[in-house]
Design a protein around this nucleic acid. Structure first.
Length: 303
DNA sequence: TCTCCTCGAGATCT
DNA sequence: CTCGAGGAGA
């Protein structure tokens, strides 16, 4: 089924509706909504709330009962989805919707609106998952539970719709404050920064010892311990230089893991082949592993 | 040198 | 779904 949903909103919003659902499973096609909660936020403050349990057509599995704490017997006297949808619609109206991994909730809601109200839920939206990946890229995961612990939110995610929505609201507000302090905008973070070697060179100065002594590095493959841009920065900080491709002037080719790339399939990249060719011709070029690279700048304690 | 495309890997929601 | 690496082509 094609869903004609709204657009992702990048701007920092002060007015929106944050919401969350609990469902009987992960599939919008086969599973049902059992709880809906939403808060209207104006001027960064919650001004009203909506909360309801919903009786599904089929029962809740023990797994979901355990996960959410919502048991079948709690839903016996609760309204069915078609009975609550009109008031949910009134609450959402044309507001921008905020959620964590918002497409999950949006899809369930979209299908229900479509089925029972014959309406398209095409509100614009913000996805906190996508946003936090940009705002806190160093976090190892961006699950709501992890974010809540890391950022020490006062609201805790409990797999109940209201608590999860409140946590989502709190983290969104923290994201706005955090970027404001750093004088950057969300929009900056979503720029598809085609970061060139020259950008790095002009923004990063050699601030540490010139360990690398002007030697020129090229990277190939996926690095295990950092992304390529960080590695570039590291080289420049330590007094080295970077090139895009392998040529006679290059001193080191640093090998990441090439297994991931479909065209390589563990074979040699073009950069690798070219480097080997230059070495045979007697050029001052070495092919080194990622760990050897870190050893050169005394980073990590590699064996 | 820069832009656009393809592909595979990995992540998140209940 | 999003993201990044590499490659094709302008």
């Amino acid at each position: 089924m094609i869903r004609n949903k709204g657009s992702f909103i990048v701007e920092e919003l002060s007015e929106y509706v944050v919401f969350d659902l609990e469902t009987t499973g992960l599939s919008p096609e086969y599973d049902e909504i059992i709880e809906f909660s939403a808060c209207l936020v104006i001027n960064n403050e919650i001004v009203s709330r909506y909360e309801t349990l919903i009786k599904p057509e089929y029962g809740i599995s023990p797994f979901i009962e355990e996960l959410t704490g919502i048991r079948n017997d709690m839903l016996e006297d609760k309204p069915k989805i078609d009975e609550v949808l009109p008031s949910i619609y009134d609450f959402l109206k044309d507001k921008v919707l905020l959620g964590h991994n918002v497409h999950f909730d949006l899809n369930f809601l979209y299908d229900a609106f479509n089925k029972y109200l014959n309406l398209e839920l095409n509100n614009d939206y913000v996805d906190l998952l996508r946003l936090t990946r940009k705002v806190y890229p160093e976090y190892k995961t961006h699950r709501l539970e992890f974010l809540s612990k890391e950022l020490k939110t006062t609201n805790k995610p409990t797999h109940r719709a209201l608590n999860d929505a409140l946590t989502t609201y709190e983290i969104y507000e923290l994201c706005k404050r955090f970027t404001k302090e750093k004088s950057i905008t969300f929009s900056d973070l979503f720029q598809t920064s085609y970061l060139t070697v020259n950008d790095i060179k002009s923004t990063v100065n050699a601030e540490e010892d010139h360990i690398l002594n002007g030697e020129i590095f090229v990277f190939t493959g996926t690095l295990e311990k950092m992304d390529r841009k960080s590695a570039w920065e590291l080289v420049v900080k330590n007094g080295g230089d970077i090139a895009d491709g392998v040529s006679k002037k290059v001193n080191y080719l640093v090998l990441g893991n090439g297994d991931y790339h479909q065209r390589l399939k563990g074979g040699k990249s073009n950069k690798m082949k070219k480097a080997e060719d230059l070495i045979l011709k007697g050029n001052d070029l070495q092919i080194i592993s990622e760990n050897v690279f870190y050893d050169m700048i005394y980073l990590y304690d590699n064996k």
